[in-house]
């Protein structure tokens, strides 16, 4: 990926090698706190079936962000979302991206729903962990690159978070050409296919975020969340 990529208005595609697997996260997504002997054996089995079957793709673009009153203007979408506004305080631009691990995980989930609901659950969890890991790799890459320019990134923010409407998926999809670029499409209820896909916005600023290192969960209002850390 060329460094200059971030300076133009057009979407780029990047393929990634498999990010390292985080077993703890997989177990967490599956609703298990520890890895018992029996769980270990089905997890190993599921991981061996996933191995080599996924493809890791991201398409992305950088756009300036302007704020007038309550309205945030990201060129290709406008929103009055307060939560996104808060996330993008003092940001001059954003990277908007879509990431996917491909359709094969969906096929595995469908297949094992019929054979073994326990494995289907594990495949769901693997898919969730895989796509989040891909997003992490991508975000870290952006962060590292911008650091050279003394710029800083904000935590990624997706449609559906807080008051940022899911409806905005449409604008992101049209702008990034996700279907053409990475094979992700939006269905009528605004869900993505393949299901293990993410779209998000990463704010870019020339000043550091205040209390950047604080736990993201602590600022969240949903206190009964199973995933709260």
């Amino acid at each position: 990926m060329e460094k200059e990529c971030f300076k133009v208005v057009s979407s780029y595609v990047k393929f990634y090698p498999e990010p390292p697997i985080n077993r703890k996260e997989i177990l967490r997504y599956a609703g298990a706190k520890e890895e018992t002997k029996e769980l270990k054996s089905i997890l190993e089995d599921c991981l061996s079936k996933v191995c080599g079957k996924l493809s890791y793709r991201v398409c992305f673009s950088e756009v300036p962000v302007k704020k007038s009153g309550e309205m945030l203007d990201l060129t290709f979408l406008k929103t009055e979302s307060k939560d996104l506004g808060k996330n993008l305080i003092r940001c001059q631009s954003v990277v908007v991206f879509a990431a996917t691990v491909g359709v094969e995980i969906d096929r595995l989930i469908e297949r094992y729903k019929r054979l073994s609901p326990a494995k289907a659950l594990i495949f769901q969890a693997i898919g969730a962990e895989r796509i989040e890991s891909l997003c992490d790799v991508f975000s870290e890459e952006i962060k590292a690159r911008l650091k050279e320019e003394e710029k800083y990134t904000r935590p990624r923010f997706s449609p559906g978070y807080g008051d940022f409407p899911l409806e905005k998926q449409k604008d992101i999809f049209a702008y990034l050409e996700c279907a053409k670029k990475i094979g992700v499409s939006l269905n009528s209820s605004l869900l993505m296919s393949p299901s293990k896909s993410v779209t998000a916005i990463i704010g870019i600023s020339d000043c550091k975020m205040e209390n950047e290192n604080s736990e993201p969960c602590k600022t969240c209002k949903k206190v009964d969340c199973t995933f709260r850390r």
Binding site: A32, I42, L121
Partner: peptide
Amino acid sequence: VYLPQLLM
């Protein structure tokens, strides 16, 4: 007991 174990 966690969900995966319940299912197994």
